[in-house]
């Protein structure tokens, strides 16, 4: 069960990495790889299916869908990675402190988490996004929605990370203390860094591998409500929800963004599982 096979990332792990590298390359290259600018309109060729000229077809304004997707990769990844990074940072510190210190502080911190947890995610995202959008000063108008969406997503998801981290730390602490007692005692901070962190790093990495996809999904849901990223930017979520409104007649408009999202999630999952396997075999 253990041994050599799990020490490396395995085929799927490397495949996941390869796909992600490809994805980031697309995100960096943007629409320059598809031969059309993502915002060039051609009314005569609107709503065409896939063809040799436009291999993913065109949208209602005659824009090349492949270019829009390539451009959308950039937006989607920025939103997902940025919001996850913020959420992870808050969650790690918060959950770690709460779990490790325990006692009364843990009680208070967890009450706060309970409260945030008891607020419906989607409601929180909408309200915070609206609030930030009208309240953010110093951000150029163009980027205001983008920043508001990132922060709203981060704010709605840090609690989950914090809870997980706390749970892991609690579990690890109990085990480590048993060992520590057996070994004759060690200082607290040493235990935290040397014993507990490695113990929870695996699960955290795995969490990360589905927090980013979760952010991509959450962003697409926000777009579906019509509160997502706004033009000229278009995330995959925006493209997919635009496609939803035409799904009966022009399924390609939802199909290709859907595939893009699915492939990306798959890559993250493969990588995540491979990492998990590699890390768990000590």
């Amino acid at each position: 069960m253990t041994g050599r096979r799990t020490r490396s990332l395995g085929v799927l792990g490397w495949l996941g990495i390869g796909m992600l590298i490809g994805l980031f390359a697309v995100a960096i290259a943007g629409d320059s790889i598809s031969g059309y600018a993502y915002d060039v309109q051609d009314a005569d060729r609107a709503l065409e299916g896939p063809s040799r000229d436009h291999w993913m077809g065109t949208d209602a304004l005659g824009r090349d869908l492949a270019s829009r997707l390539a451009e959308g990769a950039r937006v989607s990844l920025i939103v997902a990675v940025a919001s996850t990074a913020i959420a992870l940072l808050i969650g790690l510190v918060y959950g770690g402190l709460s779990g490790y210190l325990g006692g009364r502080l843990d009680g208070v911190l967890m009450r706060v988490v309970d409260v945030v947890y008891s607020l419906p995610d989607i409601l929180l995202i909408i309200l915070i996004k609206q609030l930030l959008e009208s309240g953010l000063s110093g951000v150029p108008d163009l980027y205001r929605t983008l920043v508001a969406v990132v922060l709203a997503l981060a704010f709605s998801s840090w609690v989950a990370v914090a809870r997980l981290v706390r749970g892991l730390v609690l579990q690890a602490r109990e085990e480590v203390w048993v060992e520590a007692a057996r070994a004759g005692g060690a200082r607290g901070s040493r235990i935290l860094v040397r014993q507990i962190l490695p113990n929870i790093a695996g699960p955290i990495l795995v969490t990360l591998s589905f927090r980013i996809p979760a952010a991509i999904l959450a962003e697409s849901t926000v777009s579906f409500i019509g509160l997502g990223i706004q033009p000229p930017f278009a995330s995959w979520g925006v493209l997919a929800s635009d496609g939803f409104a035409a799904m009966r007649s022009y399924p390609h408009l939802i199909l290709f963004p859907g595939i893009a999202i699915a492939v990306t999630l798959l890559a993250f999952y493969w990588l995540g599982d491979a990492l998990r396997d590699a890390l768990s075999s000590r």
Binding site: L12, P213, L217, S220, T221, F224, G237, A240, S241, G243, F244, M247, I254, P257, G258, I261, A262, V263, L265, L266, Y269, W270, D273
Partner: peptide, 17 residues
């Protein structure tokens, strides 16, 4: 994992499908 990826589509995309 293919099944998982399919299930992890945004629910409106999956629903549309």
């Amino acid at each position: 994992m293919l099944a998982v990826a399919g299930m992890s589509l945004p629910s409106f995309v999956l629903g549309a499908g």
